[in-house]
């Protein structure tokens, strides 16, 4: 997993975002055991307490759970993962629509733009 951090947001919330994305995209599949806090912190190059905080937040959201002795696991509840997927998709859509608005695009223009792009990318993205 590649970790990237923006400078204008807290590190822990970016960790939450990136691990969620890892879960949604299947990089951390349902039911998979997560690496230890220390290993994840080292991989991301962040403070272990910050990683711990991010994992606690993911636990609160239901995407991961802790088994007392065995460690942390990705949830097996597909519904929760689907919910997270939808949340991330909506966020991306909102950012996209904001950008389009700044460019002066209206509803019709945006839709036809999406159609055009879909045609062009048909081969490689499979959309």
């Amino acid at each position: 997993m590649e970790w990237k951090f923006r400078s204008d947001l807290p590190i822990y919330s970016q960790l939450v975002e990136q691990i969620s994305l890892g879960i949604v995209s299947g990089e951390f599949p349902p039911g998979a055991k997560l690496p230890s806090v220390r290993d994840l912190a080292m991989e991301a190059g962040v403070n272990p307490n910050t990683m711990q905080r991010a994992l606690q937040e993911l636990e609160r959201e239901g995407l991961v759970y802790t088994q007392r002795t065995a460690g942390r696991f990705v949830t097996e509840q597909i519904g929760v993962i689907q919910g997270a997927r939808r949340t991330i998709a909506r966020q991306s859509a909102r950012i996209f629509l904001d950008d389009m608005k700044k460019l002066g695009y209206g509803r019709e223009e945006i839709l036809s733009l999406l159609e055009e792009e879909k045609e062009e990318n048909h081969g490689d993205s499979g959309v």
């Binding site: 204008d8 807290p10 590190i11 822990y12």
Partner: peptide
Amino acid sequence: VDAIREDKGM
């Protein structure tokens, strides 16, 4: 660190 990032947006 995260309090500075949160409060100042930088």
